[in-house]
Amino acid sequence: MNDVIIFSFISLSAIGIAAAVILYFIAQKFKVIEDPKIDLVADALPGANCGGCGFPGCRNFAEACVKTGKNQGNIDGLNCPVGGGETMSSVAAILGFEVTEADPLIAVVRCSGTKTNAPKKVNYDGPETCSFAHSLSSGESGCPYGCLGLGDCVKACAFDAIFINDETGLPEVNEKCVACGACVDACPRNIIELRKKGKKDRRIFVSCINKEKGAPAKKNCAVACIGCGKCVKTCPFEAITLENNLAYIDFEKCKLCRKCVEVCPTNAIHELNFPPRKPKPEKAVSENKPEPKTIADKTETEAKVLKINKEGN
């Protein structure tokens, strides 16, 4: 009985040792020499494999970081949108570089063609995909530039950061946005833009991309940019340009002074997450117009969304 135990012990151990030796030599022979830094960098990355950086996955991005680091001596031009500046500086630290922190970006939906602002002119009866509706016609509101509200951006988002607000029929971006740009590519009308997130999430942008002349634009949507140029004249920082009947605010130059918001006659310029303004004498005038209210509402709802998400996290 003992013999059986001893023999099996000995034979199994011998097999084990022999296999170990063989495996060791084979491993030596076929060893892939890889920069150990790749593993370190990959560990520092979020690991979501979202593709936001332009590489298929996090590991490929890590390889690219190490490679460009070796070739160029820096890793400029490579950015992990998910991890942001923090991650990139830790990656840089691993590779022994310094990285200038890029300002965090966020997706911004530049359309305010809500159901009330841009009422339906036709019914759309077809599959729930913007790319098809876009090929079919200018859409239910008649605005050839406006949001179709069928959610291709929502489907493209891997982070649950964008969703359609049923009340307005427009997509809204929440705090989970990592600026990977998937929705920007998915939108057949290029409505979504990556803009600077801003301090305390404060942003000012033209919420319209309609390049039509004033009258036809306004016909389809009450809050369209009509290209009047008032904001351009008002802006003290030359951050606003007017091209093809459309104002555009350069977020690099914008200092968030909010002067353009006040002068916009159609309320096409939106401000987000600012404290309410001090009551001004001209308030009585603006009360006659219904539009400022919707703006305030929108700001509020977005603020609420952000708040809820914060609490959720």
């Binding site: 339906k120 002119k121 036709v122 019914n123 759309y124 009866d125 077809g126 098809f132 079919l136």
Partner: peptide, 8 residues
């Protein structure tokens, strides 16, 4: 009433 648009 509103016209409907859909693909053929």
């Amino acid at each position: 009433n509103l016209l409907t648009i859909s693909g053929s």
